[in-house]
Design a binder for these strands. Structure first.
Length: 458
RNA sequence: GUAGCCAUAGCUCAGUUGGUUAGAGCAUCAGAUUGUGAUUCUGAGGGUCGUGGGUUCGAGUCCCAUUGGCUACCCCA
């Protein structure tokens, strides 16, 4: 019936939604700045070569690729045909597409740092809040266009950075009144040590992908998946022992030390986590050994934020440490660590938990009734004076009966109407009516500004 | 990429084993009311039932295809 539409998984945001989203974004931005991060924006599209191969095989499929221009030009025909053929063979090619929409903010950031490392002051702390695109099938909490807010620190290996980022999470979520979020942490080196312990270190990815699903599908299914990936039964036993470790953060570390003894990588990971939990006691940080995160570029601490338990929503934020992200772009030895907020999921969670304050709607303060030419001329003058004082005002667009003008004010939730008719015009006065109470008062235009300021508490 | 559910007025939906001219609430517009609304009353407009095909004397209803939406898997914020 309706032929116009928008692409699958994208959304229009009407006024009230924009206001709520801005509330989240402004909260996050303020906290980022409070912790000394500076802003960065990068283009919506990147060269395909910048993005391809950075998110694993699955990620490559989810990139939105942009068709090259000018493929119909005769001189490009050969190239286009070649490109199409390699596409049909499942190979990625720049013959047809050499650009793609960004998939996250981390890789474009690494690209930026690689390009500008000469000019940057290290450690470089940047935040970035922009949309990203993924050609995923939409469902609850999953969109094809969504906004991420990232904060990263590059050029430093210090664990202080991890602490700061965890504190940022804590401050943002408590500001948003989502105090019972949980921040789960783990360490890639621990996962690596585990893989080593099973005797099959190159199965690291298979192991992490499987155990990451533990709280979703349970050990039974996880072990089935491991069997499928051809892990030995001893290896699976070891993993079961690892996942069985429970208790307080302290207890987990003690048990881990025992399990992973003599694995130097593992010891480093345990040491790091130990430092973090001792410095983050005031936050909701919990060690979760099943946390793995799919992205391969993480090398140290990994983070994931879960929404309060009574909400069915995946992670609403995540991040981790990467030792060599810019190495992908030819600039080695710039370690970094970063976190991300999933604004759209945070929005959905807050909507479900009714956490948005009700003062968010921005509306006009005063509606002037339009009762004729000369009358509205007087209104115009007064309106400008009000606006100079920070009181927002508008006048009804035509002189129709008051009934209509009242209804407009109601619908737009304008709290006060100002009426200047014949009588008022002659006496240089105005009627100020407060709609909620129905009270009205006729006062001089000169006094009306102060009167309105009090009425509107401005 | 795979699977399940859904599609009727601007919105939320009803619509009997297939049977006359497809309904309700809300919203919109007009009037009762030429300077006072939110709470009243009266009236009006608005649908080729997502699209295309089939079965049937007859399809909103049954069958097939297709498009779109939602949900789940894979993966992920």
């Amino acid at each position: 019936m309706n032929k116009v539409g928008i692409p699958q998984g994208t959304r229009d945001f009407s006024a009230s939604i924009v206001e709520k989203r801005l509330y989240i974004l402004n909260t996050i931005r303020a906290v980022f700045q409070l912790y000394g991060f500076e802003p960065l924006e990068t283009p919506a599209m990147e060269n395909l070569n910048t993005l391809i191969g950075k998110y694993g095989e699955e990620g490559d499929k989810l990139l939105f690729k942009i068709l090259n221009n000018g493929l119909n030009d005769p001189k490009n025909h050969d190239k286009a045909k070649r490109g199409f053929e390699s596409l049909m063979e499942g190979k990625s090619t720049t013959d047809l597409t050499e650009r793609a929409l960004r998939y996250d903010l981390t890789i474009p950031f690494a690209r930026y740092v690689a390009m500008h490392h000469g000019q940057l002051t290290f450690p470089y702390k940047r935040y970035q809040m922009q949309p990203v695109w993924r050609a995923d099938r939409p469902q609850k909490g999953r969109y094809r266009e969504f906004t991420q807010c990232d904060a990263d620190i590059v050029g430093s290996k210090s664990l202080i950075n991890e602490c700061e980022l965890a504190l940022i999470y804590h401050r943002v979520f408590t500001s948003l009144r989502m105090e019972n979020y949980s921040l789960q942490i783990n360490h890639r080196k621990i996962l690596y040590a585990l893989a080593e312990l099973t005797g099959d270190a190159n199965k690291l990815t298979d192991i992490t992908v499987a155990i990451d699903k533990l709280d979703k599908i349970g050990w039974q299914k996880v072990s089935e998946e491991l069997i499928e990936k051809q892990l030995s039964s001893e290896a699976i036993n070891t993993i079961e022992k690892y996942l069985a470790i429970k208790g307080s953060n302290e207890e987990i570390l003690v048990a881990l030390k025992e399990l992973l003894q003599n694995k130097t990588e593992g010891e480093k990971g345990i040491e790091d986590l130990s430092f973090l939990i001792h410095n983050l006691t005031a936050t909701n940080t919990r060690i979760d050994l099943s946390l793995a995160r799919g992205l391969n570029y993480y090398t140290g601490t990994i983070f994931e934020v879960k929404a309060p338990q009574d909400v069915k929503m995946g992670s609403i934020g995540g991040g981790g440490r990467y030792d060599n992200l810019t190495g992908l772009f030819g600039v080695p030895d710039i370690p970094g660590v970063g976190i991300s907020f999933g604004v759209d999921r945070i929005y959905d969670v807050m909507e479900e938990l009714k956490l948005f304050p009700n003062y968010l709607t921005t509306r006009t303060d005063v509606l002037f009734f339009n009762l004729g030419k000369e009358e509205s001329a007087a209104s115009f003058q007064l309106m400008e004076n009000l606006r100079n004082e920070g009181i927002s005002a508008e006048i009804f667009h035509e002189a129709v009966k008051m009934d209509k003008q009242f209804k407009y004010a109601e619908k737009k939730q304008i709290p006060v109407v100002a009426i200047i008719g014949n009588n008022e015009l002659e006496e240089n006065r105005v009627i100020i009516k407060h709609l909620a109470t129905g009270k009205q008062e006729q006062i001089s235009t000169a006094e009306s500004i102060l009167y309105l300021k009090t009425l509107l508490k401005k």
